[in-house]
Design a protein around this nucleic acid. Structure first.
Length: 254
DNA sequence: ATGGCTACGATCCGTAGA
């Protein structure tokens, strides 16, 4: 079974990239972030033609998440229970007996800003919910754009980024709190090349310089860790014309 | 040199992203 996450930065613009990628990468489940469209404009027909069912929670202009799957998506939940979700950042569904959670974490803008505080509150609520989800669903996969680079090796220039948004200690502690409840960063279960990132700024030729961050993740519960045989970042879509600034992260489960 | 792209919805610039 192949699971993937991809922040597409507008599903409307990236739909051709996505359908091409589904054909070549052949994932069974795909979590999408920043689809940036209202539910009424979700391209259901195109994805059905590609062989995927979908559940989604969208809004105009900003945010929006979706889960695509080749098999039925059941027990769909939108948002974190008890947390006001005026931003569409969370959707979960059960697929083949596995609970799949798709996340788009708040950006946070700048350390100390109101948006930063919101990001930390969102993470605290998320941690509490995932702790309960792990009890209910031993087979739990949490995929998405977490907007945190958890360690210095996930940052192209740790000195330049020190203390900045995405790498500040409160954000890293928030990310680690997800691991503490019983999830593993699947990417680090395996030997990986140095300077492996999942996002590069559109500016400053950042992709060409590999000036990126690793902020997109597939987190797995212990029972799924034992089935995980690989985790890879697929840089190919970032080389296309008009790419998303993020690339897919792909996990194989036996 | 704090900008530099990109997407969006509103116009022909502002907001947001990371």
């Amino acid at each position: 079974m192949r699971l993937a996450t991809w922040n597409v930065n507008s599903l409307k613009v990236r739909l051709p990239h996505l359908t091409d990628w589904l054909k070549s990468a052949q994932p069974d489940v795909v979590c999408l972030q920043e689809i940036k469209l209202e539910d009424a404009k979700f391209p259901r027909a195109e994805l059905t033609a590609a062989g995927y069912g979908a559940v989604f929670s969208g809004q105009k202009t900003y945010n929006g998440v979706a889960i695509l799957a080749r098999t039925p998506l059941e027990d769909v939940q939108v948002g974190i229970p008890g947390f006001v979700h005026e931003h569409k950042r969370v959707i979960a569904a059960t697929i083949d007996g596995m609970r799949v959670v798709c996340l788009y974490a708040p950006n946070g803008q700048a350390v100390g800003s109101d948006k930063f505080e919101y990001k930390l509150q969102w993470y605290a609520a998320l941690r509490g919910w995932l702790k309960d989800e792990l009890v209910r669903h031993p087979n739990l996969a949490v995929l998405g754009d977490m907007n945190v680079a958890p360690e210095d090796r996930d940052v192209h220039d740790p000195k330049a980024w020190e203390g900045q948004i995405h790498v500040s200690e409160p954000e890293r502690a928030a990310f680690r709190s997800l691991l503490d409840v019983g999830l593993a960063d699947s990417f680090r279960l395996f030997e990986q090349a140095e300077k492996a990132f999942s996002w590069w700024d559109y500016r400053m030729m950042a992709f060409r310089r590999n000036a990126g961050l690793r902020i997109d993740f597939v987190l797995l519960s212990q029972s799924l860790v034992t089935r995980c045989t690989s985790c890879n970042i697929d840089k190919a879509p970032r080389k296309l014309e008009r790419p998303s600034d993020h690339t897919p992260v792909v996990v194989e489960l036996s």
